[in-house]
Design a protein around this nucleic acid. Structure first.
Lengths: 337, 337
DNA sequence: GTGAAAGCGCTAACAC
DNA sequence: GTGTTAGCGCTTTCAC
């Protein structure tokens, strides 16, 4: 049916071996005469020959494909609404991968019958894991996986330093936000998060908030942690805080909406700071002041580490930590009282 | 190195053939005794056997992969800023593909050395093409491509009805928007688009605007078409229109921003209607009234057609046209004069 | 410089 | 029910 090397070889009056050498630019290294090479090339063009990538992948045991386990443990869809978190990361990943000659496959669900199949069946040369849920099941899945992998938004230590990992500097980022609010004059600052979902970064951010507040001489009690599920209730009572720091931009946006619906003015009545700071923050009303983590760059950084792993090298460094900055927009101001 | 069928066969005391049959659930069809089957399964588990997907793909000549040529001819990145057009489509495509057992690979650039390689080298069982630029180069590339393909946002006729295609009903959508504006009392309605980019849909929408206006007894002249590049200039002069219809939501958002920067109030001074109506419109200020095309569903629909093609069937229908609706938000109101 | 031969792991005719 | 055999298209020793 389709044109193979055999056909090209026949037409050029050589063997498939030679064709292989010519078509992969090994002709000079493994000595093929220029005349022969030219004949082979011409034959390939005449016949409209194309390598069969699958045959080559099979033979070479590499696919030049990177799988992105995106959205494992999340409700889909992920790109078309709300926070641009995944979108930003994906842009960086796709770009980084293509620079190294890899293409990127999105896996909203796991491929294959079982988790192990999914990931270690030769389909991908490497994997990007960015489920942020450190469940026992995930841990088990990763343990069984024999393919190079990079973790995003997880500390390498969390999985025994067996995989390279990329995070932002959550502590520093939270510090920027707390200091910003304090410098505006806020003292009663709450932290909003989704208590029932054990995001590992969320816990880190919560901890950073607590310790940074205390360093600044501000008391933190359990009442200062606001669960996303309680937001309605929280906002319907007299406000306990003059500012809220949310663990990500999606939740911050949620606070904005809820506040609007019950007549609380942002930022006059309540300052709000988010985390992530993608284009989404620009689109909200008011525009959301947010801790910026360079997601696209983190995606590219993750690919760099992964490519090292795939090449058989120990990624260096094993962990890439990106500093955050603070994008001050319209959702924060000095407190009214 | 890794465990193969041979190993499993040896351990179970059978041949690879039997293993293949058992592990692909053909055991009953091709009669394998339950006892043997069980032994094989156990051996596979004991050994931690996993199919080598590449070997299978090679052998079976199918990869269960769909390639999405996204962003060909566009500046990257595409997901993290601005319109959610691509994001919405991708969500539908990914979801649709997974329902059929396919995974989705994103190709911001073409793979391989030449365009033909890129697409017909056995890597993908099918392709989604959603470059919206009907350039000669694209046309040539598609002509050479021997892999099943589906076009999004292009009429099948534009490529000789050789590929199934998915679009929205642009004429009907534009009609909804024009009628909405007319019913509010607008008569001077302009159409904004990017004149230098030959989006095929853009031209269709422009044509639909013209004819629908005329049907409603409103005159359209060349002055009613506003080029994106001229927006600054256009908005700095006395407004020629009371409403602007933009060819997509990205450009509509641009109008919103420009208007804001020169002190034109939307919608009081100028009503604005976009096209697409993704989550992006909700996030803008004011929220953007927009013609809705069901992008995620269109993505799924495209995959359905593609899967039919891959299966060797002529997609039926060859063309899927989705009706639009109108999402009225805050960027339109009655004209002041 | 070029070719012959073997084999990657899997599947499917076709025996028996 | 199970095994034998051949081969998908490619690359890579190793020989000449």
């Amino acid at each position: 049916m389709s044109v193979t090397m055999r056909d090209v070889a026949a037409r050029a009056g050589v063997t498939p071996t030679v064709v292989s050498r010519v078509l992969h630019n090994k002709a000079t290294a493994i000595r093929v005469s220029e005349a022969t090479a030219e004949r082979v090339r011409q034959a390939a063009i005449d016949l409209g020959y194309r390598v069969n990538v699958m045959a080559r992948n099979f033979r070479e045991r590499q696919t030049m494909m990177i799988g992105v386990l995106h959205g494992i443990g999340f409700d889909r869809p992920l790109l078309d609404k709300g926070s641009r978190y995944f979108a930003s990361l994906m842009d960086g990943i796709i770009e980084g991968a293509f620079e190294h000659g890899y293409s990127v496959t999105l896996c909203p669900k796991l491929l294959g019958q079982t988790p192990e199949d999914a990931m270690s069946d030769g389909r991908f040369d490497g994997l990007v894991w960015y489920s942020t849920l450190p469940s026992q099941e995930n841990r088990e899945m990763l343990r069984r996986c024999s393919v190079p992998m990079v973790l995003i938004h997880t500390k390498a230590a969390e999985y025994g330093n067996r995989y390279p990992a990329v995070t932002c500097d959550n502590e520093q980022g939270i510090g920027l936000a707390v200091d910003h609010l304090i410098s505006l004059g806020h003292e009663r600052i709450g932290f909003a998060y989704e208590a029932h979902i054990p995001f590992s970064e969320s816990a880190i951010r919560a901890g950073a908030y607590r310790s940074h507040m205390q360093e600044r001489g501000l008391r933190v009690t359990d009442c200062d942690f606001i669960d996303a599920g309680d937001l309605d209730n929280y906002l319907s009572q007299p406000l306990r805080h003059t500012a809220i720091l949310a663990h990500n931009e999606g939740l911050a946006a949620h606070v904005l909406r809820k506040a609007f619906s019950v007549g609380i003015s942002i930022p006059q009545d309540l300052s709000v700071v988010g985390f992530d700071s993608t284009g989404y923050c620009e689109e909200l009303t008011p525009k959301l002041t947010s801790i910026y983590q360079p997601l696209a760059e983190m995606g590219r950084g993750a690919i760099n580490l992964l490519v090292q792993s795939i090449g058989g090298n120990t990624p260096n460094p094993l962990e890439l930590i990106y500093p955050c900055s603070l994008d001050i927009r319209g959702s924060t101001c000095i407190p009214h009282r």
